[in-house]
Design a protein around this nucleic acid. Structure first.
Length: 490
RNA sequence: GCCUCGGUAGCUCAAUGGCAGAGCAGCUGACUCUUAAUCAGUUGGUUCUAGGUUCAAGUCCUAGCCGGGGCACCA
């Protein structure tokens, strides 16, 4: 980021020369009539023909100097096209200027389409305009940009240098668009609820604090959307969803960013089974429309497939059954002491079983450490212990569990869902129990809302970032978030 | 917060404790159909920072900064 290297000096000198020659290399406006990649595609598809006039604009990404003729690659979001400049056609002065363009500069070109001898669709330049002079060199395009720190801090350079990175983010945008389209198609109403909340609720997570000057009070960045969307169920919006940012003041990892995008959707008169169907359908819809397939292949740097996820088969299985598979058939028949011992010794979870863990947390550790990472194929884990989910309703057939699912794909929880608690008395009890006597954590207004009556409903959350990781074959959440959180520099 | 690996030219990377290098890009020149253009020449360094050991440190030691991976935290 220093300003003192010779490449930058050279570009500043070129800028000064242009200005001295009466040329402003930062134009206010230039209107192309076709995209770079678009012109190329239409020429290849014969929608445009040899000699068709085009007006294009883009960034110079390659320069091949042949003496009295020059080739550059011009790129915009639609793709790349080659521009051919001849000394004869442009004249001495313009040709000399063309010759001294730099990689990274934006130019506008007017010319005609033609096919080179080697068969490359190209634009023969008749006129060109410098639209924006780049004062810093772009990253080399051959190796791409690999320095992770620069890739994340200066994502624009990553997008310029790495085609596959650009594709990932364009697809993420398409994924979110298709999710919206799916829910709108089912008659859901999309809403926006407060991100700054006096009492952050709907999850057990450490919040970020902020301060409102005029009101003179503390606020918290939201950790979930849940409690406000349920107020809207009370208010009569029977199908409601929101896609928005959550903020959790926790550690960072390959799977955690302090701010992450969550979809939550609630449907009156639905239950957890309704919502399982919804999750499966929306993910199938997104995979089919954005990727054109239900079979997701994850590839390594060498292009070899190391993981395949099949979104055409969705397994439903109870939490206790999965735990028994890993921890033994008799797991729930032995004593809590034996469970603790078996988990830490035979199952080698010693370091993961804290001394203060209650019995259900010991089982929870078995699930989290031994079961969840193995759930690569789409799996609805149902009937979780009631202590894990205070906002869901008990299962009539097993009151130690709740009507809940966790949809796991790619070894991660991608979507929880449940039959929502709408009994205000039960809800108060479980929230008070969860708050553990800290009264300020109780969202009284939410409880009052429930007392006005909330219809029976099913609800889900879908972690959009993790869904994108799964669909786009990325192993780090930082590779599906444009500007992942990093420690400030300097 | 802890463990671990890494940080060298614009980019990708070399360099037994002994003159800091290569390819690409850049600059100059040649070439009117190239596409990782080619050819000739050439510039470019706070080796992350600050200390220390040593005749001599990119290299060894200490502390710190930033990043990756792991752990902890995390419904």
């Amino acid at each position: 980021m220093d300003d003192t290297n010779s490449l930058i000096e050279q570009r500043r000198t070129k800028l000064a020369a242009l200005l001295e020659g009466g040329i402003n290399p930062f134009m206010n406006k230039f209107t192309p009539d076709i995209g770079c990649g678009e012109s190329r595609a239409k020429f290849e598809a014969k929608t445009l023909s040899d000699g068709s006039p085009v007006k294009i604009a883009g960034r110079i990404t390659a320069h091949r100097d042949m003496g009295k003729s020059q080739f550059i690659d011009l790129r915009d979001v639609s793709g790349r096209v080659q521009v051919y400049a001849q000394k004869q056609a442009l004249g001495d002065a313009a040709f000399d200027q063309f010759k001294h363009l730099d990689l990274g500069d934006f130019i506008g070109v007017e010319g005609t389409l033609f096919l080179t001898r080697t068969g490359e669709p190209s634009v023969k330049a008749e006129r060109f305009t410098i639209l924006s002079k780049a004062l810093r060199p772009p990253p080399a395009t051959w190796h791409g940009l690999e320095d992770t720190e620069i890739r994340y801090r200066q994502r624009y350079l990553d997008l310029i240098a790495n085609d596959d990175v650009r594709k990932v983010f364009l697809m993420r945008s398409a994924i979110v668009r298709e999710i919206r389209s799916f829910f709108h198609g089912r008659g859901y109403v999309e809403v926006e609820t407060p991100m700054m909340q006096a009492i952050p609720g709907g999850a057990a997570a450490a919040p970020f604090k902020t301060w409102h000057n005029a009101l003179g009070c503390e606020f918290f960045m939201r950790i979930a959307l849940e409690l406000y969307l349920k107020r809207l169920l009370v208010g009569g919006i029977d199908k409601v969803f929101e896609i928005g940012r959550n903020f959790r003041n926790e550690g960072l990892s390959r799977r955690h960013n302090p701010e992450f995008t969550m979809l939550e959707a609630y449907e009156a008169y639905g239950d957890y089974e309704t919502m399982m169907e919804t999750v499966e359908s929306v993910i199938r819809h997104v995979a089919q429309t954005v990727l054109g397939t239900l079979v997701i292949e994850h590839r390594n740097a060498q292009g070899e497939i190391y993981k395949t996820i099949d979104l055409s088969q969705w397994r439903r299985v109870r939490y206790k059954d999965l735990v028994r598979e890993k921890a033994g058939d008799d797991w729930f028949r032995i004593t809590p002491e034996e469970r603790r011992r078996r988990a830490s010794e035979e199952l080698k979870l010693g370091g993961d079983i804290a001394a203060g863990y209650e019995d259900f947390e010991v089982t929870g550790a078995v699930f989290e450490k031994l079961v969840e990472p193995t759930l690569i194929q789409p799996t609805f884990v149902t009937h979780l212990p009631r202590q894990l989910v205070p906002l869901a309703k008990l299962s009539p057939d097993d009151p130690t569990t709740v009507e809940v699912f966790e949809c796991c794909i790619n070894g991660q929880e991608i979507s929880p869902g449940y039959t929502e608690q709408n009994d205000p008395v039960e809800q108060r009890n479980s929230l008070e129990h969860q708050a553990g006597g800290e009264q300020q954590k109780l969202d009284e207004d939410f409880l009052v809302a429930l007392e006005h009556g909330m219809p029976p409903a099913g609800g889900i959350g879908i972690g959009i970032d993790r869904l994108c990781m799964m669909l786009l074959g990325q192993e780090s959440i930082r590779d599906v978030i444009l500007f992942p959180q990093l420690k400030p520099r300097g």
